[in-house]
């Protein structure tokens, strides 16, 4: 039997590449990649736009061990095309989720994405739909699909919809979750609706702290690979079903959110309504103080 060894080197999740994240997340030396860059399975579509391809199309997939348990893993590379879903990128994820059912193994998805890659938008959009269906089917077979969100590109567009199908979401302060990005809202609705250059507004509307407080994420961690690893180990131990009981509980939870916060103009109002002391201080709080302040947060246990 091999001893379980974790990587203990300090690493910012936000700054790290997809491959660095995987190496730091799983048990040391346990990762095996599927369709690695040496096979050069690149996008067949980017050349139409005279754009450079990447040998792994911006996503690394494979299997490894987490605290000794076998898991399937996907990590998006936010530094290539904003981690966006193209045909090959999406199909690698779809295949991994289908493999999860066949092998009966849990899945970790390390999101870092702006959403659908516009240069192959139809293929990307369909990949999102295929991945969501595969996630739900895996969960209905009793498997966990855990999302980890804290990368540079955040988790936007179709990525955020896949996130919503996961059994658990782990998020850091840097992890933004949103369907429409700040620039998209501003372009479509005007700067009065959303000023995309107001970074504080972006973080408190879409950032990890807000998502954790309203129950949009289940675990809040420091921007540290080791913190993500510990949380992922814990996340695999709980709630994974996706049946009518869970979705009815989610219905109640999301209806309640609209009733409680539907009139709020700003995240700070929501935090105040949640009973957070000094809600305007939330963005500045270090993790331990934030977790204490988040004591009365909404949670999504058995309701996601």
């Amino acid at each position: 039997m091999t001893a379980v060894t974790a990587n203990t080197v300090s690493l910012s999740w936000y700054e790290a590449s997809a491959r660095q994240r995987i190496d730091a997340l799983v048990d040391a030396g346990s990762f095996t990649e599927f369709i690695g860059p040496e096979l050069r399975e690149m996008s067949p579509h980017l050349a139409i736009f005279d754009l450079p391809e990447q040998f792994d199309d911006g996503v690394v997939i494979g299997r490894g061990r987490l605290d000794g348990a076998p898991v399937l893993i996907a990590a998006q590379e936010g530094r290539f095309m904003g981690g966006a879903f193209g045909e090959v990128h999406g199909a690698k994820l779809t295949g991994l989720l289908r493999a999860a059912r066949a092998q009966h193994q849990d899945v970790l998805i390390l999101f870092d994405t702006g959403g659908v890659r516009l240069q192959e938008a139809n293929a990307g959009e369909l990949a999102i739909a295929e991945i969501m269906r595969a996630v739900v089917e895996a969960r209905r077979d009793g498997l966990s699909v855990v999302g980890l969100i804290g990368g540079r590109a955040g988790c936007y567009g179709g990525g955020s919809l896949i996130g919503g199908t996961c059994s658990r979401l782990i998020v850091s302060e840097q992890g933004r979750i949103s369907v429409s990005g700040p620039e998209v809202i501003e372009t479509n609705r005007g700067i009065e609706e959303f000023d995309s250059r107001d970074r504080a507004l972006v973080w408190r509307t879409m950032g990890g702290k807000h998502r954790f407080l309203i129950g949009g994420a289940d675990m809040f961690v420091d921007d540290e690979a080791l913190a993500f690893r510990k949380a992922a180990i814990d996340a695999l131990k709980v709630g994974r079903r996706c049946d009518v009981t869970v979705l009815e509980a989610e219905q109640t939870r999301l209806e309640r959110r609209l009733q409680r916060f539907g009139e709020a103009e700003d995240a700070v109002e929501i935090w105040q309504a949640l009973g957070v002391d000094n809600p305007t201080d939330v963005p500045a709080l270090p993790t331990s103080a934030f977790l204490r302040a988040a004591d009365n947060r909404e949670n999504a246990d058995d309701a996601r």
Partner: peptide
């Protein structure tokens, strides 16, 4: 802003689920 503030991704995913 309101839809995203309230967590639109969860509502859309929930409907799909």
């Amino acid at each position: 802003k309101r839809d995203e503030l309230l967590g639109l991704s969860e509502y859309l995913s929930h409907l799909a689920k």
